[in-house]
């Protein structure tokens, strides 16, 4: 392993040697940078007033809205994202690589830009939204549905990338085996490929859910900030920060705990970390 090391002894000695400072110091600074904000949050939490603050209708409303919309966004992402991932991973068509690149665009553009783009397409005078409004009198922006749409826009790419990776990693010969047993492509996908890619699908869904839960920019641009209908937790935190920082701290704590709970609950079963 070690270049030029003649024997096992040298390799073992190298492994036992000191961790180099040049790596250790930046690593510890990095760790502190990631952990300290949470410590600050815990230290500044007004533990005494926690319950009354938490039980306020506003906080509860925002929390349920967040959990509900993030879950709905994850479900929508699964419904469309898994087939999209399959299309990219398992079929050959012209422009497949371009499609794959397009899917990742929402990952890199600022969410606010995504919100603006959604408004331009789905807004009351948008490309599609105009017709929707003319025919049904329904305008999507600034509704709870708009919150979900904004979250799907930013979260689905995570799911697609994760599922596509899992599908790519799955051995195609199992699909061939299923075919020789009489399975159509749809049956093979449903009963063989998807179960084999399940860990990747769940990991992608968790990522998408977490991303949807924390979504701010696209939501506030496309869905606005109306308590009860579109004001999710991140928006509530931001708003509370202007008026009563204490409440912002409590809301942040709740968001943190919910995220941690989900991660811990799923980690051992699905998101296997070595």
């Amino acid at each position: 392993m070690a270049a030029g090391a003649p024997g096992r002894r040298t390799a073992a000695a190298v492994r036992r040697g000191r961790t180099p400072w040049a790596l250790l110091v930046p690593a510890l600074i990095g760790l502190a940078f990631l952990v300290l904000p949470f410590a600050g949050l815990l230290i500044r939490t007004p533990w005494g007033d926690l319950l009354p603050l938490l039980s306020s209708a506003e906080v509860r409303g925002a929390l349920w809205l967040s959990l509900g919309t993030a879950t709905a966004a994850t479900a929508v992402s699964l419904l469309f994202g898994v087939p999209l991932a399959w299309l990219i991973a398992r079929t050959e068509f012209p422009g497949r690589r371009a499609v794959r690149a397009l899917v990742t665009v929402p990952l890199v553009i600022p969410p606010v830009v995504g919100g603006v783009a959604l408004l331009l397409v789905l807004g009351r005078s948008g490309l599609l939204g105009r017709h929707l409004y003319e025919w049904t009198g329904f305008s999507l922006p600034f509704t709870t549905a708009a919150v979900v749409v904004a979250q799907v826009f930013v979260a689905m790419p995570f799911l697609v990338i994760s599922v596509e990776g899992a599908l790519r990693g799955a051995d195609r010969r199992y699909e061939e085996a299923a075919a020789t047993l009489g399975a159509s492509r749809w049956t093979a996908f449903r009963r063989v490929t998807l179960p084999m890619a399940a860990p990747g699908v769940v990991a992608g869904a968790v990522l998408a859910w977490a991303r949807a839960l924390g979504e701010f920019g696209a939501t506030i641009t496309f869905a606005g900030n109306f308590p009860g209908t579109t004001q999710t937790m991140p928006l509530a935190v931001y708003l509370a920060m202007q008026e009563s920082p204490e409440q912002a701290v409590v809301l942040s704590l709740v968001l943190l705990l919910v995220s941690l709970a989900v991660l811990v609950a799923l980690r051992d079963r699905w998101v296997g970390t070595p």
Partner: peptide, 13 residues
Amino acid sequence: IGVVFQDYLLFGH
């Protein structure tokens, strides 16, 4: 036609 594959390819789940 029935096929027995080299690594059997039994469905693990």
